[in-house]
């Protein structure tokens, strides 16, 4: 386990005060578990997840917020982990693809499986996160809502047909937040 973080019992969060020295104390929850990390304040959430916490389901790709492969939920809303810096996550609840599937496949994941919403699978964690974020806010989105919600997720395999089927199946199944 990396030596720059420690798991803590869920409790009162520290404030986002300036740490002494160059490191920032990031207190947040990741997939429901409270943790405290000493990190450079500008360290990307993507690096924290993949390298520090070894949660590699969040994918690294364009690294400029264009492709959506690194999508995670921060306080329930999709954000690009490659654009998000550590200090912006103070006190946040972060959910990665691993956090969705801890109690078995999430209904959106199951819909992607059943409808062939992936081929190589590299974009899939980000796609699933974006769909979960959409359905949490709008359980019955119109087609244009779906297209807008997924406009920041790029897939180079499927042509999006299977993905749209998967989203519609998830909607029909009544995915609960």
């Amino acid at each position: 386990m990396p030596d720059n973080f420690r798991l803590e019992e869920m409790g009162e969060m520290a404030g986002a005060d300036i740490p002494a020295g160059p490191l920032y104390t990031l207190n947040c929850t990741v997939n429901g578990r409270a943790l405290s990390l000493e990190v450079p304040p500008g360290r990307r959430l993507l690096s924290i997840l993949r390298e520090d916490l070894e949660l590699t389901g969040t994918k690294r790709s364009c690294e400029i917020g264009r492709c959506g492969a690194c999508m995670v939920l921060v306080d329930g809303r999709p954000v690009n982990a490659c654009l998000t810096m550590a200090y912006q996550c103070g006190g946040a609840e972060i959910t990665t693809i691993e956090g969705l599937g801890e109690a078995g496949l999430h209904p959106v994941q199951r819909a992607f499986l059943e409808e062939g919403g992936f081929q190589c699978g590299y974009c899939t964690p980000g796609m699933v996160i974006s769909v979960v974020g959409l359905l949490r806010e709008n359980p019955s989105p119109a087609q244009e809502d779906i297209e807008e919600a997924l406009s920041g997720n790029i897939c180079r395999c499927t042509g999006y047909g299977g993905i749209m089927r998967a989203v519609n199946k998830a909607i029909e199944s009544g995915v609960s937040p």
Binding site: G65, G68, M71, V74, R77, P78, V79, N80, L83, T84, Q88, S130, G133, E148, A149, S151, G152, N153
Partner: peptide, 12 residues
Amino acid sequence: ARQIAAPAVRNL
């Protein structure tokens, strides 16, 4: 605002 970037970027 609707046409700038994508929803996840707009959240930040």
